[in-house]
Amino acid sequence: MTLQWILDGVIAAATLALGATGVTLTYSNLRFANFAHGEFISWGAYLALTLAALAGSVFGTAEVAGPFSFGGRLLLAAGLAAALTGVIALVLDMLVFRRLRARGAAVTAVMASFGVSMSLRALLEVLYTSRPRYYSEELEIAMPLGAGLRATPDQLAVLGLALVTGIGVALLLSRTSLGRQMRAVAENPVLAEIVGIDVAQVIRLTWLLGAGLAAVSGVALGVLVQVRPSMGAELLLPLFAAAIVGGIGSVPGAFVGALVVGVAEAATVRYAGAEWRAAVSFVLLVAVLLVRPTGLFGRQP
């Protein structure tokens, strides 16, 4: 049982990694720290909740597949929620962020994202109240994995999902023409325009991808823990910490950063108490800014 806390940390890191990948992509391509990213996580989780309930009222009671607490219905709802969250991000970009980018005022965009995040979170409380919700009432039993370690099927599913998604996004960036364009826009948007890249289109796709990944991580968190309006906001500091520890713009970095944050949080819960968990991200953030501000996989400026 002594190593169980490490496994718990790795599982927490899986949901973090999905969100941190979105943060690192949008941060490097849109060139501002988006404080509303956490809200995409919460909105994704709630949209999936509503869509799954809708599907339930059409097709009958909740369904489960195999050993999991969820079934194809939630997966479908999660996919739709990811798309809808992407649309929310696009609309926000059109109404707010694009205009501020056009003025060349990145810090003002950060500030506007702060205002947007408060509104989005409060709006969830208006719509759903702050009472925690669950995708399923199913009780999951942790299975022994050997070496005294235990995990629920749901946890293993989230772990697998994070790995597959991470590899997929990394391949998208390194192997595809869209990925090449995204890297080019991240480095130098003006030159990208000169080279003939439709920068506005690449930015739209970046929003879709980042917000979609956030929604998926929200659903994963909802399956493993619960759905609350503040779930994304509470994840924001760990996400920024993971993205900066890994190096802004690097997808493998976001995964390693998430692993560092997740395991460090688990260690803190075990050795210092659960109430200090939220301080871990700050300590890691301070440490990386002191020692290596470009992060583990970032480039030296």
Binding site: A106, V107, V110, F114, L237, F240, A279, L285, V286, P293
Partner: peptide, 18 residues
């Protein structure tokens, strides 16, 4: 970079509350 100050002060807010 400028927005690291924003992120760090956000972290301060979390830790002070904690």
């Amino acid at each position: 970079r400028t927005d690291y100050l924003a992120i760090a002060t956000f972290g301060v807010a979390v830790v002070v509350d904690l």
